[in-house]
Simulated assay, not measured.
Amino acid sequence: MIITPECVAPTGCMLGEGPLWSPSEGFLWWVDVKRAKLHRYNPRTGNTRRYDLPIKATAMALYGGNLLMVGDREIGIYDPSTEGYERLTALEDEPEGNRTNDGGVAPDGSFWFGTMDDQEREAQGQYYRYSADGKLSQLRLPSVMVTNTFQFSPNGKTFYTCDSAEQEVLAYDYEADGNNLTGRRVLADTFSFNGYPDGSAIDSEGCLWTCLWDSSRVVRFTPDGDVDQVIVLAAPRPTSVAFGGDDLRTLFITTARVGMSFPELDSRPLSGSLFSVRVSVPGLPGREFGKSD
């Protein structure tokens, strides 16, 4: 089944990323990585607001009314009410050309995120875990070019991630007590769509909605790796998705315009916008940093 979303915020982000639904506020938050901006969308009114950030944030999590952020090569807390930012820790051992990328909250309440070579030349991206007690540790996973997708199955036993450059969606068995990842396997590849897997979100049936960069599509992978639904956008570079709304049946989609030529932008002027679409299966309630399932 093919679904067509609508543009709800024509913000023209260079690299829209990290959509995050706040149920207490009824807002959708996301960032424009390249411009170091934070965006907020209110679906009740259709209004948007933009904030300046001191870092080029790439992923976020709710944290006690504030936003936990990773960006550049650090982790910090941003308070939208005061527009104040506090750095918590830096990634000391990352190569100079690396930056953070995607991230998400694990069942134990820790924040998992990845890094990448900002020039996308070397496979030197790493995976990290940041716990509520302030401990930062590196996950023992192979280095990749572009780390994307940090999602867990509804029962918390499977971790999904993407090696974007290899066009593979990966799955691991997850043991919460030891934070061990085993049983690496390829859930699906995206060669047939001519796209690169980017950010994802899990629905209540355990299916993974994954953005396909350069393919104008978001696809729904079943736990067996089959595709049963496809969203086609008016923008070629979808980056990430998040479920929102009172019933978690609204799927929000961020997009990018970075790297597109002027003729491409003329033909796809909504690139960099925020899109939304209603889906039949609701998503899962978002996890908050520091709170376990």
Rank of each mutant, 00 (worst) to 15 (best):
S24W: 05
E6K: 15
A9D: 06
Y51C: 10
S24V: 11
M14I: 13
K34T: 13
Y41L: 01
R49W: 11
I3N: 09
T48P: 04
R49G: 02
H39D: 00
H39P: 02
D32A: 05
N47W: 07
P23R: 10
D32F: 02
P10E: 06
G12R: 13
H39K: 05
R49V: 06
G12A: 14
D32I: 01
P19Y: 00
E25S: 15
Y51D: 11
S22L: 07
C13H: 12
R50L: 12
T58C: 08
P23C: 08
L20N: 04
F27Q: 06
P19N: 08
F27L: 14
E25I: 07
L38K: 00
G16F: 05
P54T: 11
V31S: 01
G16K: 03
S22M: 07
V8M: 10
L20W: 01
H39V: 02
T45G: 08
Y41G: 03
W30N: 02
F27Y: 15
T4R: 15
T11Y: 07
Y51K: 01
R35D: 09
L53A: 05
S24K: 12
T4D: 10
T4I: 14
S24N: 12
M14T: 14
R44C: 09
P19G: 03
D32Q: 11
S24T: 14
P23E: 10
D32C: 04
K56I: 06
W30I: 05
P43F: 07
I3S: 09
W30K: 05
V33H: 04
V33K: 02
M14E: 13
N42L: 07
T4W: 12
A36H: 11
R35S: 12
